[in-house]
């Protein structure tokens, strides 16, 4: 089967083609010279940008895969969660293509995409496994019992980890996106220079996260330091990053132990963080727990993961109705 996937839930327009679980081509608007066609002045966060981008991006992606629209056998698009206006652009395009070419159509939850992106690179990851989806918009832990069978174990109660990275990077005067810049600065700093405390939850929530408190503590520590030297900024970045990474890692391994997982997976934009990758590797080796982290282009928002999940459902005979609408908020595994 050859499946087209479309993703437009937030800032990125993305299109990919997957054939029987293998990635043929994947394009993301921000990484592509489609911008140049519009003079480089493209509104950042608008559904209009998705509309302007989607047709040339489709053509470009088909070209990369050496395919024509007539070769496509199934169509998938993100239907949730995200901005309704943005989602509708991808969803309507996908439905239009499927309807016009008489192809099966399926709507895919963006989070289910992140949970499964790893399968495009690694075969035979054992079930059950635990997935940490960690990005600018999400920080959630799932138990995956089989394809399509998910249990949400915990999630952030306030800010996502990637959002905290971006906000700390901003007050440190670093560029956007904050994550990579903060990681670079942190490499020059002492991770023990500043101490942060972990959030305590009153109720039973062993796998929930919170990053608002540590973001605030870092901001206050920065405000209070009179002499804001480059070394002080590097120390603060290193201490903040280490605290967040240790928190994520501890939660991930206790979730793995709790569910008797046979593997762990990290996905989402923050999975590109080198300190997180290193920190997770050590206990994974000790616990003899195989761990899998997809490449950066599959961790950040992309359509390959949407095409993958869509194809798996289409192969299993599942379809979405033409009436499938965009849904702003929809968790997986609750």
């Amino acid at each position: 089967m050859i499946t087209l996937g479309i993703e437009s839930s937030c800032d990125e327009t993305a299109i990919a083609i997957v054939a029987n679980g293998k990635l043929l081509a994947s394009s993301v608007s921000s990484q592509h010279d489609v911008h140049a066609k519009y003079g480089g002045v493209v509104p950042e966060l608008a559904s209009r940008r998705h509309m302007e981008t989607i047709a040339p991006l489709l053509e470009h992606t088909l070209g990369k895969a050496h395919l024509k629209l007539a070769n496509i056998q199934g169509v998938a698009a993100t239907f949730a969660p995200g901005l309704a206006g943005a989602l509708l652009v991808g969803l309507t395009t996908a439905k239009g293509i499927a309807f016009a070419h008489n192809l099966p159509f399926i709507g895919v939850n963006h989070l289910e995409g992140h949970i499964n992106a790893v399968h495009l690179e690694y075969q035979g990851i054992p079930f059950p496994h635990v997935v940490l989806v960690v990005s600018g918009g999400h920080t959630s832990l799932y138990e995956v019992k089989a394809f399509g069978s998910y249990q949400l174990l915990g999630a952030t109660r306030d800010d996502a980890a990637g959002e905290a990275f971006d906000k700390v990077a901003k007050f440190l005067g670093l560029g956007f996106p904050g994550g990579p810049h903060l990681e670079k600065l942190a490499a020059l700093g002492n991770p023990k220079a500043f101490r942060f405390t972990r959030p305590k939850f009153n109720d039973d929530s062993a796998f929930d996260f919170s990053f608002s408190g540590i973001k605030t503590a870092a901001a206050l520590a920065f405000e209070r330091t009179a002499d804001k030297t480059e070394q002080m900024k590097a120390d603060l970045a290193a201490s903040f990053q280490d605290h967040v990474v240790q928190f994520l890692t501890d939660r991930l391994f206790s979730a793995a132990a709790h569910t008797q997982a046979k593997a762990i997976v990290i996905s989402g934009g923050v999975a590109a963080n080198g300190h997180l990758r290193e920190t997770v590797a050590r206990p994974a080796t000790v616990a003899k727990l195989p761990h899998f982290i997809p490449s950066r282009h599959l961790c950040t928002d992309n359509a390959a993961m949407i095409a993958y999940v869509g194809e798996q459902y289409l192969i299993r005979g599942k379809r979405s109705p033409w009436s499938q609408n965009a849904v702003a908020s929809a968790e997986v595994g609750v």
């Binding site: 937030c10 966060l45 969660p81 995200g82 901005l83 990005s135 600018g136 918009g137 952030t156 109660r157 306030d158 800010d159 996502a160 990637g162 959002e163 971006d166 906000k167 109720d203 608002s212 702003a328 908020s329």
Partner: peptide, 29 residues
């Protein structure tokens, strides 16, 4: 955001479970 968490509780929404920062998503409902 903490204030909004409290507001959600005032409207009978299970706040701890759902109110997240909308910085990335821009709008949460």
């Amino acid at each position: 955001t903490s204030f909004v968490t409290g507001m959600a509780k005032g409207f009978g929404i299970n706040a701890a479970a759902v109110v997240r920062s909308p910085t990335f998503t821009l709008i949460n409902e």
